[in-house]
Design a protein around this nucleic acid. Structure first.
Lengths: 180, 180
DNA sequence: CCGCTCATGTAACTGGTTACATGATTTA
DNA sequence: TAAATCATGTAACCAGTTACATGAGCGG
């Protein structure tokens, strides 16, 4: 899946967030990951703290201790080396997995719908459609907010989320027609 | 992400493949996973052999040793208990991650395009578009083949792959317009 | 003063990857 | 007969999850 020594997806994304938001705390990065529309980015403490310290050990980010009152903060910023590695993470060359079809648990389940009776199939499709519709609404809203902001690429990303959810919904409509 | 004790995505998918293809060898399952349009399913030996033995230890699949000449085969079939757990894996209730927006490394990269110069951005988009177009062709072809076969849900899955790739391509076209 | 959010961490576990190794059978 | 494919496995490693634990600051 990934070239040895290269940044993982989560490392690249975290480095990117520190690039965008830095100087910032790991906590702030975690909150952004948690708020991501994709459940892939859980942003759990046990993942992100060791990860950022790993990045710091490699010299890609730099910690700066700070205090507000008695409260300790560690703010991280990206280094020159970090920015270089971050740019290399994008490619080219593009790793195969970047353009490959993303995994979709819904698609996997439809693949095996033959194991279920018709009513269960229908129920799953109905529930999934409802979720997707609300996801689309959320993505739409976030997209318009982001367009008003000064980060056009954030807006484009959210537009991608919206289009993806719409495509899945359209596909489910096709699936529904062929349930029997 | 997942309820404790429940089957993981890979376990569910593997169990499903044994349900569809069984009795069959682990090797056969691996080959299907490797040939999947999504790079998520690597199907490496180090993953699948221990996984299927785990399923066997839980009584979800049953091994049957067989010989053709001196060559040893272990054919697996799904058990009644396996079929029950497999059906439970689908839901309802649908786990959140099933309908959540799938992770898309391309989307993540576009999010941080601000870190790149215009020519690199353009190059990435061009390369990605080319890959997606060939993926669409492949998916289209597989889809028509599957429609001729007797597994309609396999065809629906492949149709999903096609629509997903098309949506990503359409999105990239939107991104291209806003590269500067 | 209670509960929530901010903020930092640790420890045990587990699922999956990479990279091996072995040998039979088929096909060019 | 050489190369590719079928078929089974193992061992070291690592990234990420879950579930803890601690304490400061702030709003009601």
């Amino acid at each position: 899946m990934m070239k040895a020594g290269a940044l993982t997806e989560l490392e690249g994304c975290t480095l990117g967030l520190i690039w965008v938001m830095g100087p910032c705390t790991i906590y702030a990065v975690r909150k952004v990951l948690e708020g991501s529309p994709s459940a892939y980015w859980s942003g759990s403490a046990g993942t992100v703290y060791p990860l950022v310290r790993r990045l710091a050990a490699r010299g890609l980010v730099q910690p700066k201790e700070a205090f507000r009152g008695k409260r300790r903060h560690i703010n991280y910023v990206i280094t020159q080396e970090g920015l270089m590695q971050f740019r290399a993470w994008f490619g080219p060359p593009l790793a195969d997995y970047v353009t490959a079809i993303p995994a979709d648990p819904l698609r996997t389940r439809v693949r095996f719908f033959g194991a279920l009776d018709l009513s269960t199939r229908t129920e799953i499709i109905d529930v999934a459609c409802a979720s997707l519709k609300s996801e689309i609404e959320i993505a739409r809203h976030k997209h318009t907010v982001a367009k008003a902001g000064q980060d056009p690429f954030k807006a484009l990303m959210l537009r991608g989320v919206e289009l993806m959810a719409q495509a899945r919904l359209a596909w489910l409509d096709e699936v529904r027609v062929h349930l029997d």
